[in-house]
Write a protein that binds this DNA or RNA. Structure first.
Lengths: 355, 355
DNA sequence: TTGTATGCGTTATCAC
DNA sequence: GTGATAACGCATACAA
């Protein structure tokens, strides 16, 4: 835009060398208070801001990291991202966000770059590290090409994956205990006497879904209950899909309760049940696996699992920063999901105080 | 992480000069097909990715822009951001997101930098342009310090503000027609015979609220209706606040309808009305000024305004890219808000119309 | 405490 | 077509 000032011009105007200016800029103690004052004054008067590019080139540190995720409008990802950005800012790091839109609401594949294209960008930008969550990284079958690109990236910078572990990479993982969550939810339903429990939403072929579905089947078996295919309806993670999936369910024999993949799907299901003239929890109980910001305010409130996403984000950042700094990363335990009682399963809530 | 390859090493291995490598990298036509093939091969085999830092230093183009907003978990901002990121990716630009958390749900002021601190970062990072929305930029009274910092930023790069216009800066604006939206909503209520209409949510002192509130008062007057203070309850933009604000409203004399600042507040209000044993729209009708992804699935569906946020984002990006390229920015008309009929006002659906 | 010289990895302007 | 070489703006050993 404008001919930006350089360290040379500051040095000249302050009658010192560029080294001295550099020292002042970086708060080095090897400058006399007098000179520092003079230089700082010149800097301020000129609104001089040193080029992060030049600095990065010289130090090979960019102080920025990347986050690659499919869809920032999904509350799960935005909550995660918020926390990551916050931690980064605290440490003086900037965050570049790459929205791959893989599996997004609008399914705008074509318009968006392939995920591994973003790896190349991260490489060129000399980011100091990358956090990946959702998208290809969460597929049951990860393509060889993708894995190769991932490992190439990993060779150049730390990579932390928020999601389920898989073989074939040296990336670090921050894992959610999906099984534990499903267990809590199903046990709750079991305690309430439910024996016909369905599964609603999520995409087949995606870990967050297939792992939960596996847990669902296993735990159902442990409870001595059958898993009936007619009670299982995949779709994806968004509200309209929850609606559609429940409509589908309503065509067949009804379970007495369903486990929804998250609160968006649950919300869609609630609406579908209402439209069918059925009431919750009398006609069907509902539990969700992932709490979003609105679950306590729907009618009825959704009984759901708090996955502690902000702790998850903080953990991922701690791990990433540890790797960047080369420090011994203390492997803090991943957050435990907690069941948050709503009204969608029929338990009586005490007078809950709001506001 | 690793000793990265440079253009020199590629040149050496390919037995050419760095100029030639650079030409190949940038697809210059002034290279013989033969040499190009050789060089490209060496590049590929070495997984060489040129440093964006060095390139940026040399060309003074970083191909990245910044977005400064208060809270990415707010669906309004995330929808906007998604679109911005998408447009940027299409043009080969990266986006750095700065979450200032000003006015955010969690109100974590202290942990976060002041907004103008991000201006300095944008300057140092040599971003090519910045989009700002929400936060300080949207206050009724913008502090002189902030304005000064903003103008300093503006002097160095294009700045596009998504929000209401104000004096004292040379930034570009992408404006929403808040008044038109309020008009559509209130007319709808008026047509249904409502004469006691309240205002719910939003923060006093913030343009998006105060401008809508002004419009509300003016239009009410035009309709020959009184604006009663007991029907007005500010708070902020989130679900719990909508709940609290409606609880507050329920203590006094009731309006027959309320205008909520957005769907989150509306959702909270729906729940509060339900908890009080009141039904919508029989006991109170509800319209919201900002549609979020869940409004069609709540019980009842919320009659709300589609502000066409993705078009807004696209517009902002078009303007920013125009400024960056120095091209004549065609001032496309800002998107018109449209009323989306739900069930919260009592009209029969099936006759869904859009305006 | 301050200054000098060099490197960082590109692009661009020249010659050839 | 191709190849030197000078910027680009900073940090940093090394000198003084």
């Amino acid at each position: 835009m404008k001919g930006k000032k350089t360290i040379y011009q500051i040095a000249e105007e302050a009658q010192v060398s560029i080294s001295t200016v550099s020292r002042v800029l970086n708060g080095s103690p090897l400058v006399s208070p007098r000179t520092r004052a003079i230089v700082q004054d010149v800097i301020d008067r000129n609104h001089f801001s040193p080029s992060a590019l030049a600095r990065g080139l010289s130090t090979s540190k960019t102080h920025s990291i990347g986050v690659i995720l499919p869809d920032i409008t999904n509350p799960y990802f935005s909550a995660l991202f918020l926390e990551i950005e916050r931690c980064a800012a605290e440490q003086g790091y900037s965050v570049v966000l790459y929205n791959t839109m893989y599996g997004s609401y609008s399914r705008d594949f074509k318009k968006s770059l392939g995920e591994s294209a973003y790896f190349e960008i991260a490489l060129e930008e000399r980011l100091e590290g990358v956090i990946i969550t959702g998208g290809q990284i969460d597929m049951d079958e990860i393509s060889a090409d993708y894995l190769k690109a991932l490992n190439r990236l990993r060779r150049e910078m730390p990579v932390v994956i928020i999601g389920q572990e898989f073989e074939g990479s040296s990336c670090d993982f921050v894992v959610r205990d999906l099984e534990r969550g499903v267990f809590l939810a199903l046990r709750h339903l079991g305690d309430l006497g439910h024996r016909r429990i369905g599964f609603l939403g999520g995409e087949p072929g995606v870990r967050v879904t297939s792992d939960r579905f596996k847990a669902y089947k296993r735990i159902l078996a442990d409870m001595g209950l059958a898993c009936r295919p007619t009670y299982v309806h995949f779709s994806d993670y968004y509200v309209p899909s929850g609606y559609a999936a429940m409509r589908e369910q309503l065509r067949g024999p009804l379970p007495s309760a369903v486990l929804a993949i998250n609160d968006m799907v649950a919300l869609g299901a609630v609406r579908a049940l209402g439209d069918a003239g059925l009431s919750i929890p009398e006609d069907m109980a509902l539990v969700s696996c992932d709490q979003f910001f609105f679950s306590e305010y729907t009618v009825p409130r959704i009984t759901t699992l708090d996955q502690q996403n902000s702790r998850l984000g903080r953990l991922a950042m701690a791990k990433l920063m540890g790797l960047i700094r080369g420090a011994p990363e203390e492997t803090a335990a991943p957050p435990e999901p907690r069941l948050v009682l709503g009204e969608s399963c029929g338990v009586k809530l005490g007078t809950r105080s709001f506001e």
